[in-house]
């Protein structure tokens, strides 16, 4: 059931993602080049800057993004096609898991202050709630990106805790099953939020 649900939600989200980009007249290749240039720019635009923390922060985005892709492929692909995460995929998944979790934690730590919500973001959300027209300007998209970042942070908590819990002889079979379902659903939501973040980043860059 959960496999079917995952496939359905992922397919709908990806289709919606591309339809939305298409509405903004952004093609797939353009999207790829924006992401690639963006990652390149963020690592090179301030090459002269001697601040090591800035370089670490940009490097973290790279690492976390590619690790996310790796984690996504090694979990969803076998789960969708065989119903289980086993075999080589499992080994790859759990090998990359600590690297991904630590890079995500550092990313959250380093970008939290920069992406904290401010009054401008609240007013942008108010615009969304009041269905004001000016919701696709750079400021609004930045606010949505910030919100997505915090949503991502929130979702990563059950994502990590559910799997940590299953490592210890605390939960019985029923709770083990529940924690696995929580882990899968969290991973699904996490992936959708990442998709949203990519969308906001691409549309932000296009504006």
């Amino acid at each position: 059931m959960i496999e079917f649900l995952s496939i359905l939600i992922l397919i709908i989200s990806i289709i919606y993602f591309f339809v939305a980009l298409n509405k903004k007249e952004i093609s797939f290749s353009e999207m790829i080049s924006i992401i690639r240039d963006g990652l390149k720019d963020s690592s090179t635009e301030k090459d002269g800057n001697k601040n090591i923390f800035f370089r670490i922060k940009t490097w973290l985005i790279h690492v976390t993004f590619y690790l996310f892709l790796f984690m996504f492929l090694t979990s969803f692909v076998p789960t969708i096609f065989s119903g289980h995460l086993t075999g080589l995929f499992l080994i790859l998944h759990i090998t990359a898991a600590p690297l991904f979790s630590i890079s995500l934690a550092l990313l959250v730590l380093f970008y939290a202050y920069q992406l904290k919500l401010n009054e401008n973001d609240y007013s942008n959300f108010e615009k969304v709630i009041n269905k004001d027209s000016a919701k696709n300007d750079r400021s609004s998209i930045l606010s949505y990106s910030k919100f997505s970042f915090w949503l991502l942070t929130f979702i990563s908590i059950p994502l990590l805790l559910s799997i940590i819990l299953s490592f210890y002889p605390i939960a019985g079979t029923d709770w083990q099953n529940l924690s696995l379902i929580i882990h899968r659903l969290s991973a699904l939501l996490f992936s959708l939020v990442v998709l949203a973040l990519i969308y906001f980043y691409v549309t932000f860059s296009k504006l």
Binding site: S101, V108, I157
Partner: peptide, 19 residues
């Protein structure tokens, strides 16, 4: 793996709660 995951979860939870 367990240590890294617990540490990561702690950091993320702490950041999220404080903000």
């Amino acid at each position: 793996l367990k240590f890294i995951l617990i540490f990561s979860a702690f950091v993320i939870t702490a950041v999220f709660l404080s903000f």
